[in-house]
């Protein structure tokens, strides 16, 4: 996984509550057996005027000019500002793959759905939860300031805004550490292989019916 220490970018505001993973990446694109290439279909139904198909080139498709991602001032944005319960719905990691592939490395919202939140950390995307009033303020500032950008410093757990503004944020130590160092989760867990084996042995004693071939 790509390490995350600092990230600076233009902010794109998505002013909707309950943005679900079906909206982030519609189902027809889940048929891919790859991890990459989802960025062009991020928010497909909102972004394009036609109906998207998997494996289709998107450069010639008619764009919905009203959708924020298509507005010139937000091109190249890598920070998504969102509303409550972002990422609700299915567990599809494709939603995070699509955001990351598009270039979004940070999502700021008042709240996130649990599975989506978790999936972000597995893919080098930092989800930041801020108080609702603060997010309201950011929406006003972003909307009112073309080119509005933020700098996110994971080490210091701070967002740096225009005019020297500092917004601290919370992130649990475990996820922060993994993200800062771009660690491989599986390798980390396998360091405890002995403990897993020991647990498994006592579980087999206590609940042998959970292991096939005991009947």
């Amino acid at each position: 996984m790509e390490a995350f220490t600092e990230f600076e970018s233009v902010v794109v505001p998505l002013d909707r509550v309950n943005v679900d993973t079906d909206a982030i990446i519609p189902k027809q694109f889940l048929k891919s057996i790859k991890r990459s290439g989802f960025g062009k279909n991020l928010f497909d139904e909102w972004r394009y005027l036609d109906i998207g198909e998997p494996d289709q080139a998107c450069s010639g498709r008619p764009l919905n000019r009203d959708f924020v991602l298509n507005q010139p001032r937000y091109q190249g944005a890598g920070i998504l500002l969102a509303r409550d319960n972002f990422g609700c719905g299915s567990s599809r990691e494709h939603a995070v793959w699509a955001l990351a592939d598009y270039g979004i490395r940070v999502v700021i919202a008042p709240s996130f759905a649990d599975i989506f939140f978790n999936n972000c950390f597995k893919n080098g995307v930092l989800p930041i939860m801020l108080a609702g009033a603060l997010v309201d303020e950011l929406f006003i500032e972003v909307n009112g300031t073309p080119g509005y950008g933020l700098k996110v410093d994971l080490r210091a757990r701070q967002i740096l805004g225009p005019g020297g503004r500092i917004i601290p944020f919370d992130v649990d130590d475990h996820n922060r550490h993994r993200l800062l160092h771009g660690l491989d989760d599986i390798a980390l867990t396998l360091e405890h292989a002995e403990e897993i084996r020991a647990y498994e042995a006592q579980r087999r004693d206590r609940a042998p019916w959970l292991f096939r071939g005991v009947n």
């Binding site: 567990s91 990691e93 599975i115 978790n118 999936n119 597995k122 989760d185 599986i186 867990t189 292989a193």
Partner: peptide, 14 residues
């Protein structure tokens, strides 16, 4: 429910 990275994690480590 879990994401795909966790599917891989469960497969590899239980």
């Amino acid at each position: 429910g879990i994401g795909t990275s966790e599917v891989e994690h469960v497969l590899a480590t239980q």
